[in-house]
Design a protein around this nucleic acid. Structure first.
Lengths: 210, 210, 210, 210
DNA sequence: GATGAATGAGCTTTCATTCAT
DNA sequence: CATGAATGAAAGCTCATTCAT
């Protein structure tokens, strides 16, 4: 009995992920989810309080899976290797969960000011966790002397931005090659920048802007 | 059609920008826009064919302004200076048009598969233009020998990602300091990377991944 | 000044007749009438209290013209000739005022229970007048011994029905020949019936059903 | 779709027939239909795609019932008896389905140029079927020598006109006597005409006008 | 548990009418 | 007189949610 329930729940989530990622949260109807999941419409409300909680469940699971991936990063001893592993995990996640990732990007900002404040809070919370993880990670890099001193928050943002924009492009192009192939490129880009060695004189420098 | 009060049109757009950027396109009702613009609901339909065309107008204006900013970038002769100017323009646009920028980010992916294909096409078109601009820009940097050889598309994505994620964070934090203060930091980060000089041995390298 | 006003009024009516007859009263907008009449929308409300009064004006004019035609019928001395003249007038009116006639048929019953009871009353009144005319006419035919005794109301209805259904068919077919060609056929049909002379035994007979 | 409560569907149709026949299609709102049918507004859209399809359903059912009545007409062997039966069926239908009949007359012409061309086509189609039935019927009468040679189409129109105008009058008067009482009168009128026997000299004659 | 028929609040859009110019 | 920008009531329709079975 429990098993069957879990199965139904998964089918609903699977259907919802697919539809949300393609049509967006608002444009997807509960009827469509029920139809795609081969489930009665009423059944959905046995497993989820309402439409928004389906969304919440997807995000929770996605985030928790991603966090788990990130935690394994620290198994490497060298910071540089950890960084490489972090990027690899990120890319792998996007590659393996193309739809969930697309959903994340699409709805990242859309949930603000929705009626159900529990969801909103949880959503912001999750983002903050990820932000914190990246920030801590960067701080560690600086502590270890691998990264030059700078605002760790912005460094985290920058890394996140570099990766996610590349994933974004990959998502909407028909690029068939594996995303993970980009790992070393992005790692190097983040650490050493885009400039050729010849470009010696750059105005400014990385300052702490906090 | 086009002779009607420009003022009313602006008020409607102003209201729509604000609401769309806070609540998102779908969750904003035409009634709300009318109320915020101090205008009758019917009036909106004198100036815009429907709700989606309000959105389209906002995006068109925003993009055209942004493109204009970017075109001025090339006035600088040195590529590095151009890069700095590009980042500055981007940050300045976000700072001056906080709400429009937020709207852009929020709805970047939401418009796919909407009914009115004219809008969808136009939206994709505009994104492509910006992408092309960044790609061409990077290509120029490589031709001039300032950037090391790599896929210019991904380099553009990376720069875009670095900047936009920092803006994103700024948008949703209560950071009061001007965004433009980040210009040199981001410029340096993009060109020279985050690594300290001590970090000599990085696995991999920037390859052309096209 | 007066002349110009009358001209504008006519243009509005002309436009309204055309649109009402094609699209029906409800589906025609005041904007369309104004556009077709080359007149400002507000101008229409200088000449007519509201949209329904435009309709009323059309009907009033049409009916009064039709009544005038019918009055001339009595110039003939012989009842049979009067009947022929009546049918001819009817057909000629439909032929010359194709759109107005179509409008009459289309909206004959649609006006019941509309908000403006003045219009409704007037509309029913006009129908009653026509009904009365036909009834009186038939009564005269009976009094003169030309028609066999029967309920004059139903005889009137029958004649009206014969003519109007033929006109109806002509309106919506592409029959190019003049409607008036049917005059004698319909006259004969009404007076002598459709049966061949051989058909001697008809059950029943014309009774007074009043 | 088709398994849902037939009862609800009937109640909706019943309400719609009543309202359409009184107020007309355009002036009747879906809210009113829902209220009269003691049904939620949304429920209506479970049974019918949109407002026009409610109308279509009514007409389809009415026409199919009427056609069935007409088909039984041919059970009589004698043409004259068939004619009598046809008129009787017609009158009986109007008497038993007063509102549906009124609806038919009211909207006969109103549907032209509506948006949903499927409905428009079907509506015209159905009218054509009825017209064809009457035409064929008259042709048969002529072939059998009962009717004098004439355009069968116009003869059909004439009969239709005679009957429908009498029904029309009955509908809007408070005539309490049964319509079917008119059967023989109308039959005789159609076959032998309205003239008394004394009226021997009628100009013209029934010609074939096709 | 599972279902889907039923619901009505709420949406976008239209359009007759007004009124300042 | 003439105009057309402005309006909001009212329309058709959708869809998240409920609940009897």
């Amino acid at each position: 009995m429990e098993k069957m329930s879990t199965e139904k729940r998964s089918e609903i989530l699977e259907a919802a992920i697919n539809l949300f990622s393609v049509k967006g949260f608002e444009r997807t109807t509960v009827d469509e989810i029920a139809a795609k999941a081969n489930v009665g419409k009423g059944t959905i409300y046995l497993y989820f309080r309402n439409k928004e909680h389906i969304f919440l469940a997807i995000v929770e699971e996605g985030i928790s899976y991603l966090k788990q991936l990130f935690l394994q990063v620290t198994k490497e001893k060298d910071f540089t290797l950890q960084l490489r592993e972090l990027i690899l995990s990120y890319l792998k996640f996007a590659e393996d969960n193309r739809e969930i990732y697309r959903l994340f990007m699409k709805e990242r900002l859309a949930m603000r000011l929705c009626n159900d404040s529990i969801i909103e809070k949880r959503f912001i919370e999750m983002h903050h966790e990820l932000y914190q993880f990246f920030t801590d990670f960067m701080q560690r890099g600086m502590d270890e002397g691998v990264l030059c001193p700078a605002d760790p928050g912005y460094l985290g943002m920058a890394l996140n931005g570099i990766i996610s924009h590349c994933v974004f492009h990959w998502l909407y192009s028909n690029d068939q090659q594996p995303l993970t192939k980009l790992t070393d490129t992005l790692c190097h880009l983040f650490l050493k920048g885009a400039a050729s060695n010849l470009n010696l004189h750059v105005s400014g420098g990385v300052q702490d802007v906090s």
